[in-house]
Design a protein around this nucleic acid. Sequence first.
DNA 1: ATAGGGTTAG
Length: 417
Amino acid sequence: MSSSIALRHARHLCTTTAAAATATAAKLSGPLSISQTKSKLRHEYDPDMALQIYSSFTSSNNHSSSTSSVRYAQEFTVRRLAKSHRFSDIESFLESHKTLPQITEEAFLASLIRSYGVAGMFENALKTFDEMTDLGTPRSSLSFNALLTACVHSKLFDRVPSYFNEIPAKYGLSPDKFSYGILIKAYCEMGSPEMAIEKLNEMEEKGIEVTPVTFTTILHGLYKKGRNEEAESFWDERVTKKGCIPDVGAYNVRLMHIHGGEVEGVKKLIDEMSNAGIKPDAISYNYLMTSYCKNGMMDEAKKVYDELGSKGCNPNTTTFRTLVFYLCEQGRHVTGYKVFKESVKLHKIPDFNTLKYLAEGLAKNGHKNEVKAMIRTMNKKFPPNMLKAWGKLVEDLGLAPIDTNEFDSGESEMAST
DNA sequence: ATAGGGTTAG
């Protein structure tokens, strides 16, 4: 009952596309579990379908509609709509939540602010924050932080310090470690790590916990400005002198900035973190693998990939993209094809350009069967709007054209890479 | 529960 209005609204939006509604009726017959919802949303590129999946989920979970899973689904749906530039639909969708009884729960309202931020609709986020008094929703740092996050997502970085200075006093709330984290992020994004460090010191003075997250934001900000020596001394100062315990994310920032150089340095840092009791993750191993690739050591790179499982890590899209790309570059197209097949199995398919590189390389080197198998796979796996570019590539390679005229709209994450 | 770290080659 609680999300019936949002649900009705979602259904109304869905019926605006007759084809989508028909497809929906066939595809979705009952309530969805959390994992079904996440999986379906990830693979759904049509925003109307995303809305339908959202409503199908919330309708069966209205007893816990302010949980993180609903927020995830809500943000994801908004992201899909935003990619199609359907901002007025986002507004109707999110505004419809304001008539639900849960709107007086701060967490529920904060998720609307965050969703507006994800869509880059900051003015709506601010309006929602301002409306809290009228809606009867209490304000704490939770909604304040949601507003600051919306600034960052909307790339209005310079507003973060202003709100940080004005809002807490106005509404009697206290900035916490998250508020400071967002403020520090904003300063780093504005190219001002020194201001970020100043705020870090302020946190310490006020006794607000400095976590590896806060510390990593600044480390990254310094490296991004090319201030490598300062980054290194910042690490030494925080870790060696002030006892900040770096985590895998902090080490990954360091790996990111050295993986273009010699392999030895990367291996040494991986050893260093392991010795410090921090388990490298897939991102860490991606840097090691890339480092091998850049130095032409493909067997070693492949070995890192092959041994990921035994290290308790799963390859991700970046793993596959990098490995396939460098295998092609080294002329090892058939191995590249085999790795591609594994990426399909794991639903971690590389971006279009990498696949194009692979298909062209296979074709040029006479591996016709592999190209044909690849085409069959991709005709099934590519999001609709990419089939057109894929069909053109297939034609350019002198292979049978496919009819993609019926697919000519929508956006996808793959396409943008 | 809200803040950080991957989009690396062409």
